[in-house]
């Protein structure tokens, strides 16, 4: 009898202790994926990304840190919710175009919708700087947990030997890959924007998360672009809150750039799709 009571007491104390512990420190599990390998780790909840990588990486030059992403399930759910909303809006605009007899615009909207629906997305934190600089980088060396929930992360790291081509997507005849260094005008010409494309200004999504609304026509080449800088610690914000500033970026596309050609008369929708493209999965 005493034994049973003691066992029950011990079990109860253990449950209470683990519950209390779990409320303070949520377990973090991390899968590290490269193009050729995949490893699972359990992380001390207070550990930072810098701590983890310092233990695991022998030669930091092997990995392309600028393109690396820390994918979280939580953020991916948020991205998927937005994708669903954008798809619904595209469908609404398609129906509206059909009812007003604009069948070609409806077809263009449908093409964008199909492409977006099939796009692999992964809500990601951008790493952006070599990991060995993270500790010194006061804006980004956070602990790897998420508030009030268990944390499941996937670190996706391409290798430096693999050149990530830029890509032109959106209202084009077919998405194309372009070599880094290609002039933006040439890239667009090759992608052949469709008649409903707004090709005078395109959206350029950089590897570091900056989104640039970029003049792309011959006649507006001297106008300022508008840069929406990515805030590392806020990887997802309402596009209505994007604060753009005038900027003059390089006209050549760089490694990993995504050039999104939007639709005419769809400014807000184009902006929302641009934010979704920031979270496009690098590889499955």
């Amino acid at each position: 009898m005493m034994n049973r009571m003691f066992q029950t007491l011990v079990a109860g104390l253990l449950i209470v202790s683990f519950t209390a512990l779990a409320q303070q420190h949520h377990p973090v599990t991390l899968t590290w994926k490269t193009a050729t390998s995949e490893h699972n780790y359990t992380i001390n909840p207070n550990a930072t990304l810098g701590d983890f990588l310092a233990q695991q990486v022998n030669d930091p030059t092997v990995y392309n840190w600028a393109a690396s992403r820390l994918v979280s399930d939580d953020l991916t759910r948020q991205v998927e919710r937005e994708r669903t909303a954008v798809l619904a809006e595209l469908n609404l605009q398609k129906q509206s175009a059909l009812s007003s007899g604009e069948s070609e615009r409806a077809a263009a909207l449908n093409d964008i919708r199909s492409w977006l629906a099939a796009l692999p997305l992964a809500g990601s934190h951008f790493i952006g700087v070599p990991f060995y600089q993270l500790r010194a980088h006061k804006n980004f060396n956070p602990q790897m947990q998420l508030p009030k929930q268990r944390t499941q992360l996937t670190l996706v790291s391409p290798k430096t030997q693999h050149v990530i081509k830029a890509e032109v997507v959106g209202a084009v005849n077919s998405p194309i890959l372009v070599e880094p260094g290609t002039d933006l005008g040439t890239a667009l010409e090759r992608a052949q924007p469709n008649p409903h494309a707004l090709d005078s200004r395109v959206w350029l999504i950089k590897q570091n998360g900056t989104v640039i609304h970029m003049p792309a026509a011959v006649y507006n080449q001297n106008q300022a672009a508008v840069c929406y800088r990515h805030e590392t610690a806020l990887p997802w914000i309402d596009v209505e809150q994007w604060q753009g500033i005038d900027c003059w970026p390089d006209e050549a596309v760089n490694e990993g750039d995504i050039i999104f050609v939007g639709l005419k008369n769809a400014v807000n929708l184009n902006k929302r799709i641009s934010q979704l493209l920031k979270h496009r999965a690098i590889f499955q």
Partner: peptide, 13 residues
């Protein structure tokens, strides 16, 4: 405090 201490991957806004 979460933000200042960088407790989480995503900061509170």
């Amino acid at each position: 405090e979460d933000n200042v201490k960088q407790r989480y991957l995503t900061k509170h806004d």
